[in-house]
Simulated assay, not measured.
Amino acid sequence: MRYRAPLICLLVLALLSAGCASTTDLPGTTSQKKTTPTPTPGYGSIAITSSPIGAEVYLDGELKGTAPLTLTDIPAGKHTLCLTKIGYVESNSTVTVTADKETKVSKSLRQGKPKLSLDITGSNMIYQGMDPLMEISGTVRNTGEESAFETRLVITMTPKDSKEKNLKVTKIHVIGPLNPGDEKRYVEHLQLKRGIEYRGTIKCEYRDGSKMVSGASKSF
């Protein structure tokens, strides 16, 4: 009995020195890990001006108002900024917001232009008596930023044999005004001569001031 206490002490010391036991392994103890706190994001502001004034302001795809405009409580970091106004080219950029600071942004919008494109969905020969009738159809659209006024299509059927050039047929199809995003369908007929091989072209035109401006064209 007198050797039991020293023997127990030696056994505990041997286990501790061999790394077989630690305070976290002992019953009734819990391990505590250090955690890094999540930093609180900072906020800043953006002061936006545009030329011309009144451009619509989109931040990260959300409409915020019209310039001049100051946006507050914006999370620090990079954001997408878009300014748009009817008749002008859209302006897209990335703006970096710094915490507790105001970021100034000034944009000059470029004047837009009409942009006409056309499709041909059908070009068929319809025979009426001896001479054929060409029927052509399709769509014309304005994908630009400005309206196209007095829009028209010039359709020309030209004989493939240059000796028969006097048999060329031209017809103008009036479309009228085309606002940005507008699309209109057209159908036109041209009377041709029997026995003549033709090649066709179609082009868009619109008025810009005192002159007619050519847009898209296609062959068929």
Rank of each mutant, 00 (worst) to 15 (best):
T103Q: 08
I74M: 09
T158Q: 06
S214D: 10
T103L: 06
L63W: 01
T98Y: 08
I46M: 01
V97K: 11
T151S: 10
R194Y: 03
H189K: 09
E90I: 14
S162A: 05
N179M: 12
V12T: 09
M134W: 06
G19S: 14
N124P: 01
Q32S: 00
D100P: 04
I202H: 08
Y186P: 04
L11G: 13
Y43M: 09
L15D: 07
P37K: 11
K171V: 00
K165E: 05
T94Q: 15
T35L: 02
E102V: 15
L118M: 12
L16R: 04
G42Y: 05
Y127G: 08
A148I: 07
S162E: 07
T201F: 05
M134Y: 08
T80N: 12
T151E: 05
V105I: 15
S123L: 11
G87V: 14
G122W: 02
E183T: 12
I86W: 06
G112Y: 14
R185P: 03
Y43K: 13
S91T: 14
K193H: 05
P37Q: 08
L63N: 02
A18T: 09
L81P: 04
M157L: 13
P114I: 13
D161H: 01
S137T: 15
R110D: 08
I175L: 06
G129L: 06
I136R: 06
G65I: 00
L11K: 04
G209V: 01
N179P: 03
P114F: 11
L192G: 01
L81Y: 02
M1I: 13
L192E: 03
I46F: 00
P37T: 12
T121N: 15
G61Y: 02
I126G: 00
K163I: 00
S45H: 08
S210Q: 07
Y206F: 09
L63G: 00
T70E: 15
K218T: 10
Q111F: 09
E183W: 10
N124K: 09
D161E: 05
P39C: 07
A76E: 15
Y198R: 01
L13S: 14
N92Y: 03
T156C: 10
L16I: 06
G129R: 13
